[in-house]
Design a protein around this nucleic acid. Structure first.
Length: 594
RNA sequence: GCCAACGUAGCUCAGUCGGUAGAGCAGCUCACUCGUAAUGAGCAGGUCGUCGGUUCGAUUCCGACCGUUGGCUCCA
């Protein structure tokens, strides 16, 4: 039997069991998911699902399966079905029936399982007996708004896992365990990359020296890359007058993500949620000629966005972050080439980081029925049409998402999945005809006439914090050497080697290698273990022989290969590997030296 | 923000059906000077997240708050 059908049928069994144990629990909906199923309930006052009740519910479910009652389909006229569910007090089901009727249904499907009946289109297995072989387990409880809207009551959702075989279930659980082991929050603590403090506040992570190193590597990389591509880097303040954000439209359309205004000498200032107005003011500080365009202003900008506290997670969702931001102001006829150049930059960055194959594209358009967007339908149509044309020209596969646009324009989002399968945007490229108009930005064309530039808002390496989180998870902490906060660690066998080891450390640091020395009075096995837990790319063992010959025994983290190399040879190998941003470790190989 | 669970030493966790707590690792000291995933011994470390309430007595029960986690909503 098809596993999705089994999962869905099991959700009915779950609902039946819950109503047995908790009379008065109202039913929401209970679909199958990719790894099992869930069912939503509104519990009677004072009731909640605890680990113990989940156990009882699971037991009751197995009993129902043992009973082997058939799933019986009945098609009822809408009025009869409504009467049935009204009598049961199932107000959510009544609401669903009302909607079905509105959509033109005259009859609705009902599935009975013993005394339990649920509104359902089906299909289902023939009887509960068929589900006995399915490996399932109630997994966790979660809150979920009825029909996904925060205006509706919050229901209790039980998520369950269900697979055709025990082996598949065990395999899924094992994979989830492994995923949790590479969760950036866990590795962030183990590898001393970042920390949080309740006193500093939630969503405000502290980058420890090693996390700061990773951030500095990414920042230096991206700034150099952008400068090479014709960007001009600027610095602008984190604060700006509220009035500026009223003109931009942020105050009207984005205020839920902005912190309250700060009154200073009778003037309101806000912490910026975005950098665009500041950059536009740089553009506007002098008259611009068509000869100046495109103007590509870039900044590693600190931004502040107020978030629902429940959504803050590690480095992925924070309250203050640093975006590799840029605003490109160009003539309309330059838009396509500029956009393509940004996509090229993003592709380059993703390849250099080694994550090109882990990303997906999403065209985020406006939702015409929503009021969160600036009101100018012609501009929107033009901008969205342009975006789609460019994407089709690019020939990359992409999804389309309505209602995901920025308030001022459509965007191309680069999506990345985190280790637990959750998708987030790492990079976004947006087309904006609206804000240049609001700020009355102009340039003079070759005939001397004033024209309106178009803006591209874009990130290149994304928000540094979030990108770091994805990199940590992608590599499970085992970074390529150019990204590793610590590239090599010297390990001495006995105290006798400390002088040479210190010399080697100084030499490594002098040529820019991020190197540490473990000169503790510990056995080499212990030093190895500690270094490997830190996922350091190269372990450099120095014993009596090495000190004597001024060489290192180099161990490659990824291959386990071991080589004795003269100190200078290894340092130059690693310097070159770093400069090349190699994704493969090979600095221990003598052939690499030339 | 909403729903739920959780919060005991730096970390991972045990424990107290109400009489103020223990282990491993990490840290410090000493010994060992050792060749590829944990050397041994000793010492120190906690107003049991915070603040209130109930109680003769609260880490334990209740409430509020803070924080963490999983969802929902929202988003870089």
């Amino acid at each position: 039997m098809d596993i999705q059908t089994c999962r869905h049928s099991l959700s009915h069994v779950l609902a039946a069991a819950v109503q047995q144990l908790m009379p008065g629990a109202k039913l929401g909906i209970g679909p199958a998911t990719d790894e099992g199923f869930y069912y939503d309930f509104l519990l009677p006052e004072g009731c909640s699902f605890t680990p113990e009740t989940l156990k009882q519910i699971e037991k009751a479910m197995r009993k129902l399966l043992g009973g082997g009652a058939p799933f019986v389909r009945k098609d009822l006229p809408v009025a009869d079905a409504r009467r049935h569910f009204e009598a049961q007090g199932e107000t959510f089901k009544v609401e669903l029936i009302d909607d079905l009727e509105k959509d033109g249904s005259r009859e609705v499907g009902l599935y009975e399982l013993g005394a339990f009946a649920d509104l359902c289109a089906g299909p289902h297995v023939a009887s509960a007996a068929e589900l006995r072989s399915v490996a399932f387990a109630l997994d966790r409880v979660a809150g979920a708004y009825w029909r996904g809207s925060e205006k509706n009551p919050m229901l209790q959702r039980i998520y369950a896992l269900a697979f055709a075989t025990k082996e598949e279930l065990a395999d899924y659980r094992r994979r989830r365990e492994e995923a949790m082991a590479r969760d950036h929050r866990r590795l962030g603590v183990e590898m001393e990359l970042f920390a949080t403090s309740p006193l500093v506040g939630k969503g405000l992570p502290l980058l420890l020296p090693k996390g700061a190193t990773l951030r500095r590597i990414l920042e230096r990389f991206i700034v150099d890359e952008e400068l090479a591509r014709g960007y001009q880097h600027v610095y602008t303040p984190d604060l700006g007058r509220k009035k500026m954000y009223e003109i931009s439209g942020h105050w009207d359309h984005y205020q839920t993500h902005m912190y309250p205004a700060i009154a200073v000498d009778g003037e309101d200032y806000v912490l910026r949620p975005m950098t665009c107005p500041h950059h536009f003011m740089i553009y506007a500080h002098k008259p611009r000629s068509y000869r100046d365009l495109p103007v590509r202003l870039a900044e590693l900008a600190t931004q502040y966005r107020k978030e629902d506290s429940g959504s803050l997670t590690g480095l992925i969702r924070v309250m203050s972050f640093h975006l590799s931001d840029s605003h490109i102001l160009c003539a309309p006829e330059q838009l396509r080439d500029e956009f393509l150049a940004v996509v090229d930059l993003v592709g380059h960055v993703m390849r250099q980081l080694g994550v090109r194959d882990s990303i997906g594209f999403r065209a985020s358009l406006r939702d015409e029925n929503s009021e969160k967007y600036v009101d100018n339908p012609e501009l929107w149509d033009h901008a969205e049409k342009t975006l789609i044309e460019i994407l089709d020209q690019l020939g990359v596969p992409y999804e389309t998402a309505r209602g995901e646009a920025a308030f001022y324009g459509p965007k191309l989002d680069v999506q990345m999945r985190n280790v637990l399968g959750k998708e987030d945007t790492v990079i976004t490229i947006q087309i904006d005809f609206a804000l240049p108009e609001r700020f009355e930005l102009t340039y003079v064309d070759h005939r001397g006439a004033e024209q309106r530039p178009v803006a591209i808002h874009r990130a290149s390496i994304g928000c540094i914090e979030r990108t770091m989180a994805f990199l940590i998870e992608h590599y499970a902490g085992a970074f390529p050497s150019w990204l590793a906060p610590v590239q090599a660690r010297l390990l001495t066998i006995t105290d006798d080697q400390i002088p040479f080891a210190r010399e080697a450390l100084a030499a490594a640091r002098k040529c820019g290698i991020r190197c540490e020395l473990d000169e503790r009075n510990e056995k080499i096995g212990r030093k190895m273990r500690d270094a490997r837990l830190q996922r350091i790319p190269y372990l450099l063992v120095i014993g009596a022989r090495e000190a004597e010959q001024r060489c290192l025994t180099v161990r490659n983290r990824d291959t386990g290969a071991q080589q004795s190399l003269p100190l200078d040879a290894f340092l130059s190998n690693l310097c070159r590997e770093t400069a090349e941003r190699s994704l493969v470790l090979s600095a221990e190989a003598p052939s690499a030296a030339s």
